[in-house]
């Protein structure tokens, strides 16, 4: 697979620092929920930078050739500020994908589905929820860790998805919670115990977000008796510090 040129069809603000980009990709072959693609930017002197982004939309064959990405701006980042603030409708964007056949959920997969996302790590999980809404029959739970209420992306979408009987969405606030929510703090063993499927439920667990978040949650799951072979991870990269 190689690079191809997509066109920005639409953009949508999700939060102050995150934006969803709708791309029109000629001859999009379809994708599995959880897959990502690589984006490549080229300056006018030929300088290039590329990064990976999860596909936020599910594909059911009827969307034609449109897909969505959601990008959270990383302060002083090279690529994300461009995607969040500079790129505009009608611009070309080079992409390579869909890729990655492991961090995916397929409707025919058996057993419950546990999704655990931190920050922009919710992006591929949203694609899984979307795919599940179309074709899923098994129970799904989403634990979504955010800093504060204003950091939640896909607010209305998550509300709609959570109205289904099979889907349970639980938000975790690490810095500041909305009125009526007493708990402020990171995901811990107690929360996993309360809101995640039990090891004996045979769930497949998908954990995604900044590397330290994924590391912590994966360790908590294994410590709680979950089979590491049923825990799939997608690390997005570090938080802070130069690289």
């Amino acid at each position: 697979m190689s690079w191809q040129v997509a066109t920005v069809a639409d953009v949508r603000r999700e939060t102050e620092t995150a934006r969803t980009i709708v791309l029109d990709v000629p001859d999009w072959p379809g994708h599995l929920a959880g897959q990502h693609l690589d984006v490549r930017l080229t300056a006018d002197d030929g300088y290039r930078a590329s990064r990976s982004y999860s596909i936020a939309s599910a594909w059911d064959g009827s969307d034609g050739s449109t897909i969505e990405l959601t990008v959270e701006q990383v302060p002083d980042g090279e690529v994300s500020p461009y995607l969040v603030d500079v790129l505009k409708v009608g611009d070309p964007l080079e992409i390579r994908g869909p890729v990655g056949g492991w961090f995916v959920w397929k409707p025919e997969q058996e057993g419950p589905v546990q999704l655990i996302g931190g920050g922009s790590g919710v992006v591929p999980l949203r694609a899984m929820l979307r795919a599940h809404a179309v074709a899923g029959t098994t129970p799904v739970r989403l634990l979504y860790s955010v800093r504060r209420p204003e950091s939640v992306i896909y607010v209305s979408d998550l509300k709609e998805l959570a109205s289904s009987d099979d889907v349970d969405v639980r938000l975790v606030y690490t810095r500041e919670a909305p009125a009526g929510e007493p708990r402020v703090g990171r995901i811990d063993a107690e929360l996993i115990e309360q809101y995640a499927f039990k090891p004996e439920d045979g769930a497949t667990t998908y954990v995604c977000g900044p590397t330290p978040f994924v590391e912590t949650v994966a360790d908590l799951l294994v410590a709680a008796g979950h089979d590491p072979a049923r825990v799939r991870t997608e690390r997005f990269g570090p938080t802070g510090g130069p690289r």
């Binding site: 990502h36 693609l37 890729v99 991870t233 997608e234």
Partner: peptide
């Protein structure tokens, strides 16, 4: 990162 990120 996870090996997955080498897919592209």
């Amino acid at each position: 990162l996870d090996g997955n990120a080498a897919a592209g």
